[in-house]
Amino acid sequence: MENFKDIINGEKPVLVDFFATWCGPCKAMTPVIESLGKELQGQARVLKIDIDKNEMLAGQYGIQSVPTFIIFKKGEAVWRQSGVMDKSALEQQIRSFA
């Protein structure tokens, strides 16, 4: 099984969605994130990280509000934004690092 560090250190960009199950905006973004994961298969990876189940990881990346999206490229956080986002804007960001 791959761990988080292995995944974000890969060649392909990785979109990480830091979310919480109790968060309304996070629930609204779920279909968008799932759709992007399917559409970008082979070009980028998409991960969802539940901040309540992964408190250390959320703390390590300074997650203070959810949803927070971070794009990693070769282990480095290259882009970050919090809050609900338009699918096309999010897709454009990921593709810019592919």
Rank of each mutant, 00 (worst) to 15 (best):
M1A: 08
M1Q: 07
E2C: 07
N3C: 13
F4K: 15
F4Y: 15
F4H: 14
K5W: 09
D6L: 03
I7M: 08
I7S: 08
I7H: 07
N9R: 12
N9T: 12
G10P: 08
V14G: 06
V14L: 07
V16E: 06
D17S: 08
F19K: 10
A20N: 09
T21C: 03
T21P: 08
W22Y: 10
P25M: 11
P25W: 10
P25N: 11
C26S: 11
K27Y: 00
M29W: 05
V32E: 07
E34K: 13
E34M: 09
S35I: 02
G37A: 09
K38E: 13
K38C: 01
L40P: 01
Q41W: 03
Q41I: 05
Q43F: 01
R45H: 06
R45F: 03
V46Y: 04
K48H: 10
K48P: 11
K48N: 13
K48Q: 15
K48M: 13
I49P: 13
I49V: 15
D50A: 06
I51L: 02
I51A: 05
D52H: 01
D52T: 09
K53F: 11
E55Y: 02
M56L: 15
G59Y: 05
Q60S: 13
Q60L: 15
Y61R: 01
Y61D: 10
I63R: 06
I63Y: 05
Q64K: 13
Q64V: 10
S65I: 06
V66W: 00
V66S: 00
T68K: 05
T68V: 03
F69S: 06
F69R: 09
F69Y: 13
I71F: 02
K73I: 04
K73N: 03
K73Q: 10
K74G: 12
A77Y: 07
A77K: 11
R80N: 08
Q81R: 13
Q81K: 15
S82H: 08
S82C: 10
M85W: 08
M85I: 12
D86S: 13
K87H: 06
K87A: 09
A89K: 14
L90H: 05
Q93A: 03
I94F: 01
F97C: 00
A98N: 06
